[in-house]
C-alpha cells in the first residue's frame, strides 16, 4: 500500500521536474505555483477531513497567519525569510493547539461553526490592526525568499521550491496515514466509540492532526507571501476557507491524492474559463455541481469507477 504511494510520488516528482522544460511561459508556471501552494494546504486539510473526519472552515486563517507572520517578520523586523517561515509555522501551530483544545471537543456543525468563527476573527484582525498588517489596503515590499546564497526571485526557481515542498508534504502525509496515528484515526473515523473502547485517545489524535494541518497551511502562507510579495486580507477570508474544503471534497477526501487533484482542477479551471468571459461563474458552478451529483466521492471516485467499474468507493478509503 505505502509502496504504491511512494511510486506515485516518485512519478509525480519526475514529471514535475520536467514540466518547466515543456512550459516556459511564466503565466502557466505562475498558475502551477499557486496550485502547489494551495495543494500544501489541502493535503493537510484532507488529513483532517478524510482521515480524522473533522471539518474546518477556518483554514484560510492558518494560511493567513503564515503569510502575515512571515511578511511582517521579514519586512518590519528584518528576520531572514527561512527563519520567519519557521517561526510563523511554530506560532501557527501554537494557535492551532490553543484553538484545537476546546474546538475539537465539538462535533459536526458546532465544529464547523467554531472554526468558521475563528477564521472570521483572524480575518477581522488582519483588517483592523492597521499598524501591523496595513489593514484593508494591505502591505507590500516583502523581500524574496533566500536560502543560503540562492534568492528565489524567478518563477522557475519558485516552481521547484514550491513543488519540492509539496512532494515533501505528500511524503509526510503518506507516512502519517500509515503510522500509528493514521491507523488510530481511521478507526476513529469508522466509529469514534469503538476507537474509544480500544483505548485510543481520540481527542489527542484529532488535535495532533489539526496542528499538523495548520502547519501545512502556515508554510503555504509563507510561500504565498514571498511569492506575491504583497498581502491584503481579502485573500484570507471565509470564502477561501470554503474553497479549500470544496477542493478536498471535489478531488476525493479519502485520499491525499484526491486533495491534490481537486486543488489542481479547481485552481486551473477558472483560468481556462477566461475564454468564455463572464459566463465562467456559471460553468464553474455547473461543473462543481455535476461532479458532486454524479460522483459524490469526488474525482478520485470517478477515476476509480472508470478504471475498475465494479470497485466500491469505500475501497478508496484505505
Amino acid at each position: 500500500m505505502i509502496k504504491s504511494n511512494y511510486l506515485a510520488l516518485l512519478i509525480l516528482a519526475l514529471v514535475l521536474a520536467f514540466i518547466p522544460l515543456a512550459i516556459s511561459n511564466v503565466y502557466y508556471l505562475g498558475i502551477l505555483i499557486f496550485v502547489g501552494i494551495n495543494s500544501l494546504i489541502t493535503i493537510g486539510l484532507s488529513l483532517l477531513m478524510g482521515y480524522a473526519g473533522q471539518i474546518s472552515l477556518g483554514h484560510a486563517a492558518f494560511f493567513g497567519l503564515g503569510a502575515y507572520l512571515s511578511g511582517v517578520l521579514s519586512t518590519r523586523l528584518a528576520v531572514p525569510p527561512v527563519s520567519a517561515l519557521l517561526l510563523a509555522a511554530l506560532f501557527t501551530a501554537l494557535v492551532a493547539l490553543l484553538i484545537g483544545l476546546p474546538t475539537l471537543r465539538l462535533k459536526g456543525h458546532y465544529l464547523a461553526m467554531a472554526t468558521l468563527g475563528f477564521g472570521q476573527i483572524v480575518y477581522i484582525v488582519f483588517n483592523a490592526w492597521v499598524e501591523m498588517t496595513g489593514g484593508p489596503s494591505g502591505f507590500g515590499n516583502i523581500p524574496r525568499l533566500r536560502i543560503g546564497g540562492v534568492v528565489f526571485d524567478t518563477d522557475l526557481k519558485y516552481f521547484y521550491l514550491v513543488w519540492g515542498l509539496v512532494v515533501v508534504g505528500l511524503f509526510f502525509a503518506v507516512n502519517i496515514i500509515h503510522s500509528r496515528v493514521g491507523r488510530a484515526l481511521r478507526t476513529m473515523h469508522t466509529s469514534e466509540v469503538a476507537a474509544g473502547t480500544l483505548g485510543i485517545n481520540t481527542v489527542r489524535y484529532k488535535i495532533q492532526i489539526f496542528v499538523i494541518s495548520a502547519v501545512y497551511a502556515s508554510v503555504a502562507g509563507s510561500l504565498y507571501a514571498y511569492f506575491v510579495t504583497f498581502l491584503s486580507p481579502g485573500t484570507f477570508g471565509i470564502s477561501f476557507s470554503i474553497l479549500l474544503v470544496t477542493m478536498v471534497v471535489f478531488g476525493g477526501r479519502f485520499s491525499v491524492w484526491g486533495a491534490l487533484l481537486g486543488t489542481a482542477v479547481l485552481s486551473i479551471l477558472p483560468e481556462s474559463l477566461r475564454i468564455i468571459k463572464d459566463y465562467d461563474v456559471l460553468v464553474y458552478g455547473a461543473v462543481l455541481l455535476l461532479v458532486m451529483i454524479f460522483f459524490p466521492e469526488g474525482l478520485v471516485g470517478l477515476i476509480g469507477r472508470v478504471f475498475r467499474p465494479r470497485s466500491l468507493p469505500e475501497k478508496l478509503r484505505t
Binding site: 509525480l12 491524492w257 487533484l261 489542481a264 478520485v300 477515476i303
Partner: peptide, 10 residues
C-alpha cells in the same frame, strides 16, 4: 493500483 492510477490521472 488505484492510488497509482490516481497519480497518473492527476
Amino acid at each position: 493500483k488505484k492510488l497509482f492510477l490516481a497519480g497518473v490521472s492527476l
